[in-house]
Amino acid sequence: MRRFTPIKILAVALTSTLAGAPALAGGAECAAAQAAKDHELEELRAELFQTKPEVALGESRDHFRPLCDADGFPLVGNLMRKGPSLIQPSAYCAEIRKLATR
């Protein structure tokens, strides 16, 4: 029987030190993770952690959600190219449900 050591490409660290904010991912064991070890990037990250969650992430304490339709299915297409301060996905889904009932 094989033993797998999966390669993490995207992971969420639930023990994020960003108090009160949605958890952040940072443990990807791929080439990109090497970038996180870069000294300058560490400085940037530290700065980010000191930023107010609302400013840094543009949303409330809630976890983020993908854009969805009235029934909670994700919208098709790589179209979410506006920054997070623009729209809160939870509010977005509520707005979609309102539209669907019109």
Partner: peptide
């Protein structure tokens, strides 16, 4: 990998 390179993904 881009998200990771920018400091990490958000919790989705």
């Amino acid at each position: 990998r881009v998200a990771a390179a920018l400091g990490g993904a958000v919790a989705l």
